[in-house]
């Protein structure tokens, strides 16, 4: 009795956190998990019957004779999603690292202004910002009309409704998630180390590669994870910029809960996304323990 009371007294402080995590994370995930093992209701929702159909549908389909046959359609969507998310991470890294490096090198007052500018796009609705990209990319859009006016091309380039457009939209959307953690890592970097590297026969680029990049690796990895996870499940950019023909996992999930009315399948897809993300995080954690991406101070 006294043991329990002492335990509660010692751990009362984490109660609010535990409550928030429980209500807003554990419970919803459990609901999704349970739904994914039920049968779809006729008008959306679920019927309380146990079923593994949702998971079967990921790889198999019933043919005309009601036999299960292998169907790679959803697997393809999965791989396309992984591919586009990876492209988005790479793009964010290529653009985000120099931006973060530049900001970290500015005087302190100016840094805060830049950081504010980085976050400004968040003040506008994501849907509207993504629509704007349609205006830029479409056949009669900004880029095509400019290029045609300059006489560079005769016919409009197909920019919109491509995988490239989706990746561009994702890069645009998630770039602050890459810039901010890298900036945080670079801000702590001791600039005298760069001088030491130059003194020891490193060029500018050598110092960047051997000193700055390894020491900002925690920020690079954190930024990559922060971009990869939402990019994998994104559906606004794939829907608007991919035109719905280049489906990604996120749009597929959204489809199951709306037009397709197959909640269990949508839930199963969500669980698959979560499993993939967890796998990536576990690989990262293992790498960290080995000291591969770890930061020692």
């Amino acid at each position: 009795m006294t043991g329990l009371r002492a335990y509660l007294k010692d751990h009362a402080g984490i109660l609010p956190a535990a409550l928030v995590i429980g209500v807003f994370m554990i419970v919803p995930i459990l609901i999704i998990l349970i739904y994914s093992f039920l049968a779809p209701g006729d008008y959306g929702g679920v019927k309380p019957e146990f079923s593994t159909d949702a998971y079967q549908r990921l790889l198999f389909q019933n043919d005309l004779f009601d036999q299960l046959v292998f169907d790679p359609a959803y697997l393809k969507i999965t791989f396309r999603s992984l591919w586009i998310a990876t492209v988005a991470v790479t793009g964010c890294l290529i653009v985000g690292f120099p931006v973060a490096y530049y900001i970290a090198g500015q005087p302190e007052e100016r840094r805060n202004v830049f950081l504010l500018l980085i976050t400004i796009p968040f003040w506008t609705n994501l849907l509207i910002r993504t629509y704007c990209w349609i205006l830029v990319l479409r056949d009669t859009g900004l880029i095509n009309s400019a290029l045609m006016a300059l006489g560079v091309i005769d016919a409009p380039l197909t920019l919109l409704y491509t995988e490239g457009a989706i990746a561009l939209g994702l890069i645009y959307t998630y770039i602050p998630f890459m810039v901010l953690p890298i900036y945080a890592a670079l801000e702590r970097l001791d600039l005298r180390l760069i001088e030491a590297a130059r003194d020891l026969y490193s060029s500018r680029w050598g110092a960047l590669w051997f000193i700055v990049v390894p020491l900002s690796m925690p920020g690079i990895i954190a930024g990559s994870i922060l971009v990869f996870i939402p990019a994998l499940g994104a559906f606004i950019a794939p829907d608007l910029l991919g035109g719905g023909k280049n489906l990604m996992l996120g749009s597929l999930v959204q489809l199951q809960f709306s037009a397709a009315r197959n909640w269990p399948f949508g839930s199963a897809l969500a669980m698959v996304i979560m499993a993939m993300v967890l796998l990536c995080l576990m690989l990262y954690a293992r790498n960290l323990r080995r000291g591969g991406g770890g930061f020692q101070h």
Binding site: D190, R192, L193, E195, A196, A197, D199, L200, I211, P214, L215, F295, Q296, H297
Partner: peptide, 14 residues
């Protein structure tokens, strides 16, 4: 062809 010993050592922590 000159090297420096820095006041704060500046060893590479990684």
């Amino acid at each position: 062809p000159v090297n420096t010993v820095f006041q704060h050592y500046s060893l590479f922590p990684h």
